[in-house]
Design a protein around this nucleic acid. Structure first.
Lengths: 132, 132
DNA sequence: ACGTTCTTGCGAACCGTTCGCAAGAAGGCT
DNA sequence: AGCCTTCTTGCGAACGGTTCGCAAGAACGT
């Protein structure tokens, strides 16, 4: 997946990708660094950060601010129409498939001539397990 | 606006509120602290942060992560259906009024029985002035 | 195999934000 | 007005995620 880009295929990049691809949910940079570290302990945290930044630029991964904490969560890329439902009680994150994003794009262009590149939707609330 | 809550009316709180109420756009905590400081230089940054946190808890103000930088932006509260369009070229932030938020709430409840408390939508792209 | 260019590891720096604590105000009660 | 309790503040230091500079090291075209 780095083939065809101008990016060199290096060990940190391969491992970061492996970790993200193996994880169905979201990981913090620290968690990614940990798992990468287990595969190759010589890989540095800053390389993980740099790799994530590079991947994000090419839209290979997606960064989100999910909790109320100020940490980034990462996952392999998915389209805008997949939005995040974050349970404020158990912190679970559910992916929800909606076409509201594409409607929004249209709406926003009609109303403001705003050309949207990226739509980020986060809904906080209570998931099915945490509703009384 | 602190009347009727259990919050004491103090100088930092009054001034932070004044600053936010006077600003139509978004401010960082540092900018708020600056402006508060101009009105009363004895007020500390940490009080500004504490005040913002307190106000946010009571939903009097709204915190958003707008740019790609990791700073919070603050504004007086508005309903969920007001969403943010952030221009990635000139960094302008436009408020857009949409009912997609309430549709989302319904959608998300039907599909996942997820009870949403808060919907945060940020669209990044190019505003009318920055489109070629 | 070689040389250029891109990446990495390391460690220190950065910077927005938070914390602990003692001093200081708010506001209820008399 | 004065007192007392409880909530807030100012201060300064700490925190923690993320970034940076630089020299050593790896990728990959030729």
């Amino acid at each position: 997946m780095l083939d065809g880009s101008d990016l060199r295929v290096t060990r940190p990049r391969r491992l970061v990708w492996e970790v993200l691809a193996a994880e169905p949910g979201h990981l913090t940079a620290a968690e990614i660094a940990d798992r990468v570290h287990q595969k190759d302990s010589s890989i540095n945290v800053s390389s993980v950060y740099r790799t994530l930044a590079t991947f994000a630029e090419r839209r290979l991964v997606r960064e989100s601010r999910l909790g109320s904490d100020d940490v980034s969560y990462w996952e392999t890329a998915h389209a805008d129409h997949v939005i995040h439902l974050v349970c404020s009680s158990c912190n679970a994150v559910v992916h929800h498939d909606s076409d509201s994003a594409s409607m929004l794009r249209r709406e926003v262009f009609t109303a403001h001539k705003f050309v949207s590149a990226h739509v980020e939707v986060t809904v906080t609330g209570l998931c099915i397990n945490c509703t009384v």
